[in-house]
Computed example of a mutant assay.
Amino acid sequence: MRTVPDTVARITRLKSGKAEPAQPRNRLFALTNFGSNPGALKAKCYLPKSLAKKPALVVVLHGCTQIPADYDAGSGWSKMADEHGFALLYPQQVRDNNGNLCFNWFLSDDIGRDKGEALSIRQMIGTMVSRHKLASERVYVTGLSAGGAMANVLLATYPDVFAGGAIIAGLPYGTASTVSGAFERMRGHGIPKSRELRAGLRAASPHTGPWPTLSVWYGTGDSTVAEANARAIVEQWRGVHDVASAPAVTDTVDGQTRKVWRDADGRDRIALYSIHDMGHGLPLNVASGYGKSGPYMLDVGISSTVHIAQSWGLTRKPASGRRRKAAAKPISARVMPADRSSPRDDKIRKAIDYALRATGLKR
Results as ranks from 00 to 15, higher is better:
V58F: 14
F86S: 08
F103E: 10
W77Y: 15
L119N: 11
A43N: 11
A56I: 07
K54Q: 15
L51R: 02
M150P: 12
N152P: 05
R95A: 12
A40M: 13
T65N: 05
V59C: 04
Q123M: 10
L107G: 08
S130V: 07
N97Y: 06
N98A: 12
V161N: 06
K133P: 02
F103Y: 13
V60M: 14
V59K: 07
A56W: 03
F162A: 11
H132F: 15
S108W: 04
G116H: 05
K115I: 05
D82K: 06
A146P: 11
D70T: 15
A118Q: 11
S50C: 07
N98M: 10
V141I: 09
S136N: 13
G116R: 05
V141Y: 02
R113T: 03
V153Y: 04
G99H: 08
A146L: 08
A146H: 02
S136R: 15
S78W: 06
I67C: 03
Q92E: 15
A118F: 03
L119V: 05
N152T: 12
P91M: 10
V59S: 04
D114T: 04
Y158D: 12
L119T: 07
A118G: 11
Q92T: 06
P38Y: 14
I67K: 09
R122D: 03
A156R: 07
D96M: 10
Y140D: 05
D110E: 13
L88A: 01
G164F: 01
C45G: 15
A52E: 04
L88D: 00
Q66C: 12
G85W: 00
R113Q: 14
G85P: 03
G76M: 08
K49M: 11
Q92R: 08
C102V: 06
R113K: 15
D109Y: 08
S145R: 06
A40C: 10
A52G: 13
G74M: 13
G74K: 08
N97E: 12
S75Y: 05
A149T: 13
D82R: 06
C45L: 13
W105M: 11
N152G: 10
A135F: 14
D96C: 04
D160N: 13
A56D: 09
Y71E: 15
A135V: 02
N152Q: 13
D110W: 06
A52V: 08
E117Y: 02
H84L: 02
C102G: 12
L47N: 01
I125E: 03
A163L: 07
V94Y: 09
D72I: 02
G143K: 14
N37Q: 10
A135G: 06
T65I: 11
N152S: 11
S78Q: 02
S36N: 14
G76S: 09
Q92P: 00
Y158S: 09
A146Y: 06
L88H: 00
R138Q: 07
K115H: 10
H132E: 07
G39C: 06
A151K: 06
I111C: 14
W77L: 12
G126L: 05
L41R: 02
D96H: 10
V94L: 10
A73E: 14
L47P: 02
S145L: 09
